[in-house]
Design a protein around this nucleic acid. Sequence first.
DNA 1: CAAAACAAGAAAATTATTTTCATATTTAGA
DNA 2: TCTAAATATGAAAATAATTTTCTTGTTTTG
Lengths: 293, 293
Amino acid sequence: MAPILNALDHEMSKLSHMERKLAERILASPGEVIHMGIRELAEQCGTSPATVTRFCKVFHFKGFPDFKVKLAAEIAQSDYGLQDGSSSYQDIVAGNPLSVIVEAMQSNHLASIRDTTSLLNIERLESVVDLLCKARRIDLYGMATSSIVAQDFYQKLIRIGVNCTAFSDSHMQITSASTLSKGDVAFAISYSGETPETIDALSCAGASGASTIALTSYGSSTLATNADIPLFSSSLEQGMRRGDMASRIAQLHIIDILFTGMVSTRFKDYIPKLEQSYLNVQQYRHKRGGQMK
Amino acid sequence: MAPILNALDHEMSKLSHMERKLAERILASPGEVIHMGIRELAEQCGTSPATVTRFCKVFHFKGFPDFKVKLAAEIAQSDYGLQDGSSSYQDIVAGNPLSVIVEAMQSNHLASIRDTTSLLNIERLESVVDLLCKARRIDLYGMATSSIVAQDFYQKLIRIGVNCTAFSDSHMQITSASTLSKGDVAFAISYSGETPETIDALSCAGASGASTIALTSYGSSTLATNADIPLFSSSLEQGMRRGDMASRIAQLHIIDILFTGMVSTRFKDYIPKLEQSYLNVQQYRHKRGGQMK
DNA sequence: CAAAACAAGAAAATTATTTTCATATTTAGA
DNA sequence: TCTAAATATGAAAATAATTTTCTTGTTTTG
């Protein structure tokens, strides 16, 4: 599966002192090594370029550049392998070089999307899509980070002519919620599921007769319990305070599924509007560009 | 699926005669090209090494060796993907059942994050993180979908006490841009890289003396060309009008990396602020909850 | 305890890549 | 149409990267 890195590890005992240092460095972060020069790698291992070249030849590569290209290919493949199975969330701590952050972030976001997808309940999603399609009016509630997700959904829905509004002001949320009635939908978003403003708004909407949907991180939360239909994004390990980054990506993933589901089931109604809104923006731009010249 | 080869194909019309020959040769058998020297490739295309180097820079690579390593990684990925067929971007069409949509969406979002990560230039990211950390003031520009990304970044930066603002109003963008000066940073976001309002704002910011950063989809665009430092998220096949969904996820992925990079390099300055802002929100809520009961 | 074998770096040689510069070609404007 | 500017391109110089050679010091072995 990973012939090169495997070989480095396995042949470790047969290598000389400096060669072992090289092998260790490469195994530690191969992703970094493929972007290094021979001089740089040698320095980092307290050795000389000559030794690096010899090292590459020991493993039957033409030279260092050849080694890099082959290693890059191997890494790309094994990164891909992450897709099936091992999903681990990495916490990010002080002083990490950017290359480590990039890898950790990729790993977190991939895991987050995968985990969220596997938690999805198709039937429940279908009910939500159906409710949203039939809704006379849709209210979106979300504070802080979750307001970003709400705004995103809002922009999408507007483009297909759905009557909806996104609120991040807690007073406006409640005000709007109290004017909803049967056939309307309130859609509340909260990472923790414990944001009091959002809980209040959704409860109020439910009391007014609207259907209520909650999108929160997986686990029993007040918001999810109060909703007619709860949807869940994957939750990260507790205490990872910076973990709402992956969660937001997962929530947007769900939003995309819901939106695409709406467009797909009501193709004939929505697609022309989507095309039209796209073209209108283009045309407006063109006109403006012409005027400016 | 294959951002580099895709870009070569897609940008073909914008390339010059010799550059097109190069693109064609590379597309014909990329697997061969990654094992060639610059001289060899030049010869096979009846051109000079100089043109090859320039060609690589057009596509924002550091140089020919950098191009080879990145291409090797991409080929390895797509080869692997062919085995289970799940790695390509899927377009979503009418009447698809939700289960298909869910799978397609997962595939798209995963591919988007992986592709974007593989395109990242660590040194460039480091420069951006450095600029952002040292900035006296940061302006964020983005229209429509991109304003969501800008808002997201804004919320993060505010939490660590950075002096910044996110604009989606084109007049405000320009107004603010013209008041920037040396030591300030303008950060523009656009999926297409051709949003006129955003281009104007970034140019204006540059003229005012600020450092300019662009975040766009991969490929040569006006916005990227005008920026001091361009950053790229992976681009989808043309014509996939609903494709900005994956792009937005990829852009948020980059924002997360930048933000985490800032926090990580300036741990001592930022973390206390981050903790404090978190605790303050909690405390405020608790107080409010008490009063209401 | 020598002689052979090996490891490893310094520096030279080679090779690869990038940049500069001069020239040819195309494009845009008068 | 002609000229000026912009662009494209290759030759060659400059730079950088890599490999090889040569030397030295170390370990191993008889």
